[in-house]
Amino acid sequence: MPTPTRILVPVDLMEGSRTILDYAVQLARPFNASIEVMHAWEPPQYVAPDLLVAAPGWNPQSLEKTALEAARKELDALIGQFQASQPITQRLEVGEAASAVLRVAETGGFDMIVMGTHGRRGLPRLLLGSVAQKIIARAHCPVVTLHVPEEK
C-alpha cells in the first residue's frame, strides 16, 4: 500500500471531533501528509435553505449562510488547537454527508479518510443510517474509523 500524502478528515463538529483530528495529525506526521478537515452541512428537508433567519438587530440572511458561518467558526476553533508540522486546511460542503465526503475524496485526490463513528445500533442506526458505513462501502481509498462514544 502506498504511503498517504493527502488525508481527508470529515467531522460533524460534535464532541469527539478534536480526538479524530488529533489521531489524523499523529497518523500524518511520519509521512509528512497534508490534512484537510471537512464538514458537510445538510439542509433540513422540511425547510428551504434560502429561508431567511432574522433576530432583532441582525440583517436577515439565509439559513444556509447562517449555518455555514457557524460551521466555519467551529472549524477555525478546532483547527486552531493544533500546531501541526504538516498543513491543515478546511472545507465546508453543502449536501448529504456521505455523498459529500465521497465526492471530495475522489475529486480531491485524497488517499486516506480518517473519520469517527458513533457506533449506533438498532433503531437509531436504522433511522439515521450510518455515514461511516456508506463511506467505507464506497470509498476509493482506505478509511480509518475511530469509535466516538455518544455523550450520555
Rank of each mutant, 00 (worst) to 15 (best):
G57V: 04
P49K: 10
L8D: 01
Q133G: 14
K134Q: 15
T117I: 10
Q81E: 14
V148Q: 07
V11H: 00
I113Q: 01
R6H: 15
A28T: 02
I7E: 02
V101I: 15
G57N: 09
N59Q: 14
P30F: 07
E151C: 00
R121I: 11
L127S: 08
F82M: 09
R91T: 14
D50V: 03
N32L: 08
H140R: 10
E42K: 10
S85Y: 14
H147I: 00
R29P: 02
Q90E: 15
K65H: 13
D111F: 00
L123Q: 02
E15Y: 02
A33M: 06
R138C: 04
H140S: 12
P43F: 08
P49H: 10
L51R: 12
K134E: 15
V9H: 03
S85G: 15
V144D: 06
G129K: 08
D50M: 09
P142K: 01
R120C: 03
S62P: 12
A132D: 03
T145E: 09
V47S: 12
T3G: 10
A100K: 04
Y46N: 10
D22Q: 07
F110Y: 15
R72Y: 11
H39C: 11
F82Q: 06
T5G: 15
T3S: 15
L68R: 14
T117G: 09
A48F: 11
A137W: 05
I88E: 07
R125S: 13
Q90R: 11
Q90N: 11
P49M: 10
T117A: 09
M38C: 12
D111C: 07
G108I: 00
N59M: 09
A98D: 15
L92N: 04
A97C: 13
L27H: 03
D12M: 01
L126N: 00
E42D: 12
P30K: 04
P142F: 07
G80Q: 09
E96D: 10
R138W: 03
A105V: 07
Q26F: 05
V104N: 00
G109E: 07
L102Y: 02
E69R: 11
M38W: 03
D50Y: 10
L8K: 03
G57T: 00
A84T: 10
R121Q: 14
S34H: 12
S62L: 07
E96A: 05
V104Y: 04
L92P: 11
A97V: 14
P49V: 08
L102T: 02
V131S: 08
E69W: 01
P56E: 14
G116Y: 06
L13H: 01
P87V: 07
I88W: 11
D22H: 07
A105L: 05
D76G: 08
T145C: 12
R103P: 00
L8W: 03
L127T: 04
Q133K: 08
A105I: 04
S62H: 05
L92K: 04
P2E: 15
F31S: 01
A84K: 12
S99V: 05
G108Y: 02
